[in-house]
Design a protein around this nucleic acid. Structure first.
Length: 304
DNA sequence: TATCCAAGGTAAGTT
DNA sequence: AACTTACCTTGGATA
């Protein structure tokens, strides 16, 4: 086991692990105390979080178990490999959050949202897990989306030994493609079951891959992702923002529609494409997704 | 205890 | 292209 501490004072801007991982951006991490996405929002300021990541392009060559917790001034970690480059990637530690905040629109709602969760960063999830978890997110509560991913890992994830325990990686496209719709319904995915199965099949066969959207212009990338079954504009925006580095992506979900109705009514253009263009412009252009994520978490956690 | 409702939407069918 | 409707499941609200 390798361990270390990343000095958070070296980052540009603040950092907060709990709000980054428990704000509905990622469903691929867990808490060792079992309180992940707890209904009461259990305090996790010093909790250990853990994920099992597949090889990451340009970052790591093999699967890795990564464990992390925030201690004063540092991000303490333990892993079966050097987790520093992995954590830098997964948690976007290289983002200049001061510059991002500077670029967010200067107005009360946004200021309150940032002050509620200073240091929250966008995640950079592995593409396939991000894609599948957000397919599962349709009409579903955040805590239950997480539960579904746990069941998928338990049923189809490769076992990984670490620190005397057995954990499970997120299922590979190949393994998930072998599941039947009924298998996945048994895991309580409901009507999302055939979406997940068919999308896994598309990825496993090479017909399309989520990472294949990289490099395309933003709206082209969004259109490309909607070729997956169960992926509309909203889920596509989530994958672009939380996995593929499109920080301008603003997923138009129920919470953001509420914010648009109340605070940005002039941005409601009646359809996704045009409303998206207007709200992206309004929320800071190329970092609009950061603004959205603060507003989403703030509204969802009871602020207004 | 029973019933109802809505949750980070999408696909398929109609007009 | 815009508008409707069905869709699994379940915790929490309401009666």
């Amino acid at each position: 086991m390798e361990t270390g501490v990343i000095d958070l004072a070296e980052l540009d801007g603040d950092f907060d692990l709990q709000s980054t991982l428990e704000s509905g951006q990622s469903y691929l991490w867990g808490r060792l105390d079992g309180q992940m996405y707890d209904r009461d929002g259990a305090f996790g300021g010093d909790a250990w979080y853990q994920t099992v990541v597949p090889p990451l392009d340009g970052v790591s060559d093999e699967s890795a178990v990564v464990r992390a917790r925030q201690v004063d001034g540092g991000l303490e970690w333990a892993s079966n490999t050097d987790a520093v480059p992995i954590l830098r990637s997964l948690l976007r530690l290289d983002d200049d959050l001061d510059a991002v905040v500077e670029a967010m629109p200067d107005e009360p709602l946004v200021a309150r949202a940032y002050e509620a969760y200073p240091g929250m960063r966008i995640v950079r999830d592995p593409p396939f897990g991000c894609l599948v978890s957000f397919i599962c997110s349709a009409q579903m509560r955040v805590s239950r989306i997480f539960d579904m991913q746990e069941r998928l890992r338990e049923a189809y994830g490769e076992k990984v030994e670490f620190d005397g325990e057995t954990y499970r990686a997120y299922p590979t496209p190949e393994r998930l493609a072998e599941a039947t719709e009924d298998d996945l319904r048994d895991l309580r995915l409901g009507y999302r079951a055939p979406y997940v199965q068919r999308t896994a099949e598309m990825v496993a066969s090479g017909e399309a891959t989520p990472a294949g959207a990289r490099g395309l212009d933003y709206e082209e990338a969004r259109d490309y992702l909607t070729t997956f079954v169960g992926v509309g504009d909203k889920v596509a925006d989530c994958v672009l923002l939380f996995s593929l580095d499109y920080l301008e992506a603003v997923p138009l979900d129920t919470w953001i529609h509420t914010a648009i109705d109340e605070y940005y009514p002039e941005c409601d253009r009646g359809n996704y494409r045009e409303t998206s263009r207007a709200i992206r412009e309004r929320l800071g252009g190329d970092i609009a997704g950061y603004t959205q994520t603060y507003v989403f978490h703030y509204l969802r956690s009871g602020g207004e």
